[in-house]
Amino acid sequence: MLGLLAEEPLHGYEVKSRFERMLGGTWEVNIGQVYATLQRLERDGLIEASGARGDRNKLAYRATEAGRREFEDWLAYPDQEPQQLREGIYLKLLLASRTGDGSLDALLTGQRRVCLQRLRDLAALEEQAQRDGRDDLVLLFKGASFHVEADLRWVDACLDELARRQTDRRTGGDAP
């Protein structure tokens, strides 16, 4: 939001719509959240009211000098947060291996199928973004595809590992 307001003064609802459009529908925010955040930013001195009054008599905001600096700092700051893994599949894997029954195979297969379909759909979205001239969205969808690919490779690695464990058990286990 700070970035948008650094560009030009905007009203609250304009911020929401612009934000959503920028993210191509991948992040929907509710208006309450927007106003709460605007308040906090103003409290922290990063934005200020710009004076103009538009529809519904709401205030327009713009970024302050401090806000601009803060934004630029944030832009320059590489992401160092821990890797986020989608909890569902990982928890299932960890738990399922404890019970040790064959349902893990089916789970992984199903997940794989989901990944494939997802890839296809993302490809379609990417093509559409290309046609619409939204190069930034193209990159976003590309990024998403890569993540899905990574998931797929991880699923394959799990399958590999399971197969190896099975053969180990078979050869190492029962005596003839």
Binding site: G25, T26, W27, E28, Q117, R120, A124, A144
Partner: peptide, 23 residues
């Protein structure tokens, strides 16, 4: 053959596929 899927043109919207998570 491990898997044999027909993939559809589901026409899913971006939001169903991707969620950008804030920090």
């Amino acid at each position: 053959v491990f898997d044999d899927s027909r993939l559809s043109r589901s026409g899913a919207a971006a939001g169903d596929l991707v969620r950008v998570v804030g920090q």
